[in-house]
Design a protein around this nucleic acid. Structure first.
Length: 839
RNA sequence: GCCCCUGUGGCGGAAUUGGUAGACGCGUUCGACUCAAAAUCGAAUUUCCACGGAAGUGCCGGUUCGAGUCCGGCCAGGGGCACCA
């Protein structure tokens, strides 16, 4: 070794080329080796890789490289979630075509990913905006339609009357279009839906078997699916009609003091038709916020319709209100309100002076106990409720359902929060929905041999509205059924459809169909899926649904696409800001010089205050650019940083000092490799033991994705090697640490491997074996406690009998001083661990 | 408002799952090398202390020979949410 510094600027690219030329990371579907599918959520091609991607993909990369070393055939692919709004926004703002913009971004980001040295199989790269990909998606969509899982229904959208476009919720700001500023209207459109509710029970039940998913994600999905058991029954109304309501608390039926319907309930609409005050009230309800937090704090409002509802048991007349807190799309859109035992009903009743009777109490004696300013929704015993008195909540629920069913007024019913998945988007840059509207035949699927239905290239984004609707020729086709003049569907698919099956296409890419069932079965389910928590619900639920739908249609023979899921934390950074002219101005990390406990502006030397460590964002200017730091420190130091210190599920605070430390360790390892001697002789028992312990521990840490612990082990081994005298053991330890660190710092490892005369590429080398006999120490340190406090430690042979340990412990001078002549009542001995003396 | 998670040195975090709290890294301090700097190497680094010890894992209590770990109640920070009857 001539140069004593590792030079990533030169070495990184050289090894990246070597891996490419050897096609190291191309997965062979027909290999005899056990298969391992490691997948990270594919990125949206925004134009730049950000540091969060680097962390996500580094984790997957370490696991993929480790799996290769342990004899697996690894599939580790990458692609692009390439449809979506930002491309259309760019088209409107910069006048570029969404396709060209997207493809340029992909090229940039792919080059960035290559510079980080990821072991990816680029031969399987997929971009969802490729007609080849979305053509297969169209075929699958038609299959789903034929399986009865696709339907159309009217549904409300946010309509921007100036931009003539439908807005996503995030594009509506204070009721106005984000771009045009125009007041957003609610419009009803005929839209396409997927019957995810068909699988509600199955999706819920499946969560119970996903043992290797974070509990948190399973819980979020469970809440989202939201199964509830309750009672649906009808009130007789004073106007002669009946009103079906749904309740999860039939046990509290004697506490109902009013009935409420949603503002968009047919009954409310009917009242509004004859009463302008009611119509005005309904209008008022439609404004107002949409988020849960806003609505929770919003005042409960109601409008008394003057209609009465007859209580099924007491015959009492209950007023019927239109209320802003009742939702049309849950249950029946109407409720029986029990103010004593539901907080929303309580607030409403308080405001409108309605009675609040108690029907559940801690005990029978508490039947007359007043409420303490809020509803009581907990368990208890039923009171003031005629035939239910004295029952517990659960028995009372059953009894009310039994009676109502017996009278034929209603039935026990399961209701789900989960709603069908609306997949229509009135946009250009998405997968065209492969259907044709014929005036005579109605909605007809496009013939499969006409797929892919590609997007027209000649479109402009300067005119408001959907370019597909405006296009002079694109939508005009003949009906595949009758041959008459017809029109294509101009809606495109939600991009969550694209990401609901990309992991199948990675595994198998036949030209004539979406995937091959056998080949997919060879790779899936994905062994380890890694991505952000932000996809905990929608993407992961949709992918689970899509997989089940394909299974039902016989395309697949498994239901769960991802065996194990890991959600990684964010990369954060401290913020730098100061008050300038009355407002807060943020500074980027490269605009300040950071000292021990303060930060100074590079521009004027003034002190800048150091703010909280938060998620990197452009507005706070606390971002770092992966390209810049890779250029400065090399890919391996950056990868090492991504894995160090913070547990992967937690946030990782980026710091300049931290990356400097990683850079130093890269060089430290490099110097260590230089001490490797091919013909060194002699044994070093302690180092040998440490080396084998590290092999076992690092393997375990990588398999459990505890990269921070693996990193700490490697630091320890490096320290031990540095302290050791030259020996055959030491040279072997150096070779071992090189191999153990290679999944994390592959460029450095290759360079070192060549230097110590290793054969071939480290990328193809096997993970070192360890001797289990060397994992156990033959000497152990025993803690000696007196009354639970540490007094002394003893170093003894492992496996020493209890009696001997006790004798040794009592012989300790320090222990005797602590006991100070008191009589020993009890001695607890845990072999190889501790002795605790109780006096 | 509801649901969930997390609180350990100056900082990121370890802790064999109830058995020596603070591994490892960062930072800081001192020292070596150097004309000097960088790089590198060595030592120290929870707090207080009479150098014998004492206290200490957000706070208060409990279980236990023994609690960062288990239980109960608070406090703080973070995340999710579709007013879900």
């Amino acid at each position: 070794m001539t140069d004593n510094r590792f030079n990533p600027a030169e070495a990184d690219a050289r090894w990246q080329r070597a891996w490419d030329e050897a096609c190291c990371f191309e997965a062979d579907s027909h290999s005899d080796k056990p298969k391992s599918y490691v997948l990270e959520m594919f990125p949206y091609p925004s134009g730049r890789i950000h540091i969060g991607h680097v962390r996500n993909y580094t984790m997957g990369d370490v696991l993929a490289r480790y799996k290769r070393m342990t004899g697996h055939e690894v599939l580790h692919p990458m692609g692009w979630d390439a449809f979506g709004m930002p491309a259309e926004n760019a088209a409107m703002e910069k006048g570029v075509h969404p396709g060209g913009w997207t493809r340029d971004n992909i090229a940039n980001m792919k080059a960035q990913l290559r510079r980080i040295g990821f072991a990816l199989d680029w031969s399987r790269e997929v971009a969802t905006c490729d007609p080849e990909y979305y053509g297969h998606e169209q075929a699958l969509f038609i299959d789903l339609y034929e399986a009865g899982l696709v339907y159309r229904k009217e549904s409300e959208v946010n309509w921007d009357p100036v931009d003539m476009t439908v807005l996503a919720n995030e594009q509506v700001i204070d009721g106005k279009g984000w771009r045009s500023g125009a007041e957003v209207e609610k419009r009803k459109l005929n839209q396409w839906f997927l019957k995810i509710t068909d699988f509600a029970e199955d999706l819920l039940e499946g969560l119970g078997k996903l043992d290797d998913w974070p509990e948190k994600v399973r819980l979020m999905q469970e809440n989202w699916i939201g199964k509830s058991r309750g009672l649906q029954f009808a009130f007789d109304l004073s106007n002669g009609e009946t009103l079906p309501v749904y309740t999860t608390r039939p046990d509290t039926i004697f506490g109902a003091t009013f009935v409420a319907v949603a503002p968009d309930h047919p009954l409310a609409q009917a009242v509004a038709a004859q009463n302008c005050d009611a119509a005005k009230f309904i209008e008022r309800c439609k404004r107002g916020g949409t988020t849960a937090a806003e609505l929770e704090t919003a005042e409960k409002l109601g409008f008394d319709t003057g209609i009465g509802a007859r209580h099924p048991f007491t015959g009492e007349n209950l007023p019927v209100f239109i209320a802003n807190f009742v939702l049309m799309d849950y249950g029946t859109g109407a409720i029986m309100a029990v103010p004593g035992h539901d907080q929303r009903d309580f607030e409403f009743a308080t405001k409108y002076g309605l009675p609040i009777p108690r029907v559940v109490a801690p005990s029978v004696e508490d039947a007359g106990k007043p409420f303490d300013g809020e509803a009581e929704s907990g368990e208890g015993v039923i009171v003031n409720s005629d035939f239910l008195d004295g029952m517990d909540v659960e028995s009372a629920k059953r009894e009310v359902i039994r009676r109502i069913e017996g009278e034929g007024r209603g039935e026990g019913k399961t209701v789900w929060r989960l709603r069908d998945w609306g997949v229509s988007r009135q946009r250009y840059w998405g997968t065209p929905i492969p259907f044709i509207h014929c005036p005579t035949c109605g909605v007809v699927p496009a013939p499969k041999d006409s797929l892919p239905i590609t997007l027209p290239e000649d479109v402009d984004f300067q005119t408001p509205g959907n370019p597909l609707v405006r296009h002079p020729t694109w939508k005009h086709v003949d009906c595949p059924k009758c041959g008459g003049k017809a029109e294509r569907e101009t809606d495109t698919l939600d991009t969550f459809v694209d990401s609901s099956w990309y992991f199948l296409r990675f595994a198998s890419q036949p030209a004539d169909r979406p995937f091959d069932r056998e080949e997919v079965a060879a790779w899936l389910p994905v062994e380890q899926y890694i991505g952000g928590i932000e996809h905990a619900i929608l993407h992961l639920l949709y992918a689970r649904f899509w997989t089940r739908a394909l299974q039902r249609m016989g395309h697949l023979d498994f239901a769960e696409p991802f065996a194990s899921l890991f959600t990684q934390g964010m990369v954060t950074h401290e913020t730098y800001s100061r008050e300038e002219g009355g407002k807060t101005v943020y500074y980027a990390p490269d605009e300040i010089s950071r000292e021990a406990d303060r930060a100074l502006s590079k521009a004027d030397g003034g002190e800048v205050s150091i703010g909280r460590v938060i998620k990197m964002s452009k507005s706070k200017k606390n971002t770092v650019d992966p390209d810049e730091i890779i250029a400065k420190y090399g890919a391996d130091a950056v990868r090492w940083f991504m894995l160090s210190d913070s547990p992967p599920e937690r946030d990782l605070p980026w710091s300049e000092a931290g990356i400097e430390g990683c850079w130093r360790f890269v060089q430290r390892l490099w110097r260590l490799f230089g001490r490797h001697e091919r013909d060194a002789a002699g044994e070093d028992k302690a180092l040998l033991r440490k080396t084998h312990q590290t092999i076992a521990a690092v393997a375990e840490d990588i398999e459990s994705l505890s990269f921070n612990k693996a990193v700490a082990r490697l630091y320890e081994l490096a320290g031990a090697i540095e302290k050791a005298e030259p020996s055959a053991t030491r040279s072997e330890a150096i070779r071992t640490i090189l191999l153990l660190s290679s999944p994390m710092m592959p460029h450095l490892a290759e360079e070192g491997w060549a230097a110590i005369g290793g054969e071939g590429l480290v990328a193809d080398a096997p993970w070192p074996a360890f001797d289990p006999a060397l994992l156990v120490e033959d000497e152990v340190t025993i803690a000696v406690q007196h009354k639970g406090k540490l007094r002394d430690t003893l170093t003894v042979a492992k496996g020493l009998p209890k009696e001997e340990l006790e004798t040794l412990a009592l012989a300790s001078e320090k222990v005797q001083r602590s006991i100070d002549g008191a009589s020993v009542r009890k001695v607890i001995v845990v072999p190889d661990r501790l002795v605790n003396i109780v006096t």
